[in-house]
Design a protein around this nucleic acid. Sequence first.
DNA 1: ATGTATGCAAAACATTTGCACCTGG
DNA 2: CCAGGTGCAAATGTTTTGCATACAT
Lengths: 141, 141
Amino acid sequence: MDNKELKKVGLKVTLPRVKILEILETVPQRHMSAEDVYRALLESDEEIGLATVYRVLTQFEAAGLVRRHNFEGGSAVFELDDGSHHDHIVCQQCGEVVEFFDKVIEERQQEVAAERGFEIGEHALVIYGNCVKEDCPRRRR
Amino acid sequence: MDNKELKKVGLKVTLPRVKILEILETVPQRHMSAEDVYRALLESDEEIGLATVYRVLTQFEAAGLVRRHNFEGGSAVFELDDGSHHDHIVCQQCGEVVEFFDKVIEERQQEVAAERGFEIGEHALVIYGNCVKEDCPRRRR
DNA sequence: ATGTATGCAAAACATTTGCACCTGG
DNA sequence: CCAGGTGCAAATGTTTTGCATACAT
C-alpha cells in the first residue's frame, strides 16, 4: 500500500485511513458527519468501526487534511482541507451547505477582531439562513 | 405570581420559569449554558431539575425570549434576546464571547446570501479566533 | 377541577476511551 | 518483531423523554 498524502503528514498507511480519505475525496457532498462516513464505508463493504472513523477524522484534522465544523444539528461535519479558505452558509431547514468567499467580509472580520483584541488565525464564519427553494433538498436528519 | 414578560408570550407563570428568566436577566455574563443556569439556580437555593432548565430554555427560545448558540465546545449557550441583532467572536482557547455589530459585514452577508439563493431572516455569524491576552480569562470547562 | 409543568430516572445521541488483538513497516 | 492502529463495548457528556405527581388558573 502506498499513499502519498498520508505519508506526507506522518500517518502510517492503514486500510481504514486510506478508505476514509478515499471516501472524502470521491463523495459528491463535500461535508460529511462521522456517521455519514461510517455508512459510506459500510456501503463499500468495509468493516471499519465507528470509533475508528472518529479517531481517523480527528487525526486528519490535526494533520491538516480535513476541517471540522460544528454547524447546528447535533453532529460535527468534516470536509477535505484543500488549503483554500472559505466560509459557509447553512440552511437551517434542510441543512444544505453552500461555500463562499467574500473579500470584503474577510477584511472587515480582521478589523473587527483586531479592534476587540482578537487575532483570527484559524477562523470560520457561518451564516445560518434559509434557502429559498420551496422544497429544501438534501434534508439532513 | 405575576410576570409580564412570560404572560406576554403566552407561558404560564411558574416558579422555574420566573427564576430562570431572573437569572438570565441579572447574571453578569450574557452567555450561559443550561448547566450554568442550573448551577446558578442551586446557588440561589432553588431546587429545579436540569431537565426543566432545558425545557424552559427551549420554550423561551421558541417564544423569542432567548437565543441559543451552538458555539464549539460541547454545550449550547443561551442569551437574552433583547431584539438588537449582533454577532459573536468566540475565543477558541478560553471560550470568551465578545459581541459586535458591523454594518459592512451585515450588508455583505445579505448580498452574499442573496446571490446564492438564501435569505437570512434569522442568522448568526460566529467568528472563532484567539484572544491575544496571555492568560485567557473566563475559562469555560 | 383540569390541563399543563415539574422532577426524577431512564433513554437517546454524539463522541471518547480502555483494552485485548491485529497489522504495517 | 513491535509500536502503533483497530474493533468492540463500555464510559462520557449533553440533551430529551416517559411518567407519576404537583401546581397555576
